[in-house]
Amino acid sequence: MTISPDSRIAVVTGASSGIGEATARTLAAQGFHVVVGARRLDRLERLAEEIGGTALELDVTDEDSVDAFTTVLPRVDVLINNAGGAKGLATVAEAVEEDWRWMWETNVLGTLRITKALIPKLIASGDGLIVTITSVAALEAYDNGSGYTTAKHAQAVLHRTLRGELLGQPVRLTEIAPGAVETEFSLVRFDGDRERADKVYEGITPLVAQDIADIIGFVASRPSHVNLDQIVVKPRDQASAGRFHRTTDQS
């Protein structure tokens, strides 16, 4: 890895698509050298070439992968915890433990692993920033979403706890809790069922990945004494996790 010693480095997890990819582009435009991590290395390499960044394979559910990723980084100024996701919409009575385990490994333990590994470098930067992408599912519960909402609640509490534990250190922490964002999120949730995924956004104008990336860019551009603790962002058509105003196209 060849990075100018004068570069400020931003790490973005889950950067092969969606919010992560858009965020990498936004931070690169702001002058950061962006290190993008995800499992789909081919996508990462194309992105890194376009933005002048660095692509490194990363599976946040694998401790060895996290160690290999974090050890080679010469410094870290910004960490964007974006890797995560949902599986299914089962009730508690019909919960699939394998899906729960994947959601907890990815959202909670994945965030723990990468954050824990990079805290020393973020502190050493003298002006570190940790942004964790949670969800409105980290703020409320909704029917059939218990696996995801419990994981996102746990991820959010991890992040909020760290805010107090790092008090006095030169590290800011921001939680961003998006509502409906049209990315590959629902496609993953429904195991590639495009028709079912599309119905999630039917009749509404959802957020897009760039909407969240713009907010992250704003957070990263604040002066070091300004800490935006929590930002909740939803499309105008969404009032809560499960409440939407949907229109029907009559044309």
Rank of each mutant, 00 (worst) to 15 (best):
T2C: 05
S4H: 13
D6Y: 13
I9Y: 09
A10L: 03
A10D: 10
S16H: 00
S17D: 14
G18Y: 11
G18K: 08
I19S: 04
A22R: 06
T23A: 05
T23Q: 07
A29C: 02
F32Y: 15
H33A: 03
V34E: 05
R39K: 11
R40L: 04
R40S: 00
R40T: 02
R43H: 04
L44I: 14
E45L: 01
R46L: 04
L47V: 05
E50V: 08
I51W: 12
A55W: 02
L56V: 06
D59G: 01
V60E: 09
V60M: 04
T61D: 07
D62I: 01
E63T: 07
E63G: 00
V66Y: 01
V66L: 05
D67P: 00
A68D: 09
F69Q: 09
F69R: 04
T71G: 01
V72W: 01
R75S: 14
V76E: 08
V76F: 09
D77N: 15
D77T: 12
L79E: 05
K87R: 15
T91H: 05
V92L: 15
V92A: 14
A95D: 11
R101Y: 01
R101V: 09
R101Q: 13
W102M: 05
W104C: 06
L109N: 12
G110A: 03
T111N: 03
K116N: 11
K116D: 07
K116S: 10
A117S: 13
L118Y: 13
P120Y: 08
P120E: 08
L122T: 03
L129S: 14
I130H: 14
T132V: 11
A137L: 04
L139Q: 06
E140W: 05
A141D: 15
A141K: 10
S146F: 02
T149W: 13
T149F: 13
A151S: 15
H153G: 06
A154I: 13
Q155N: 12
A156Y: 12
L162V: 10
R163G: 05
R163N: 00
R163P: 01
Q169F: 11
L173P: 06
T174F: 13
I176D: 12
I176S: 11
P178V: 02
A180Y: 14
A180G: 11
S186M: 12
R189V: 01
E195H: 10
V200H: 10
V200Q: 15
Y201K: 01
E202F: 03
I204Q: 09
T205M: 11
D211N: 12
D211K: 11
I212M: 10
A213R: 00
I215C: 13
G217K: 06
F218N: 03
F218S: 07
P223K: 07
S224A: 09
V226S: 10
N227W: 00
Q230E: 11
P235F: 10
S240V: 03
A241H: 06
R246G: 14
R246L: 10
T247R: 14
D249Y: 15
S251L: 08
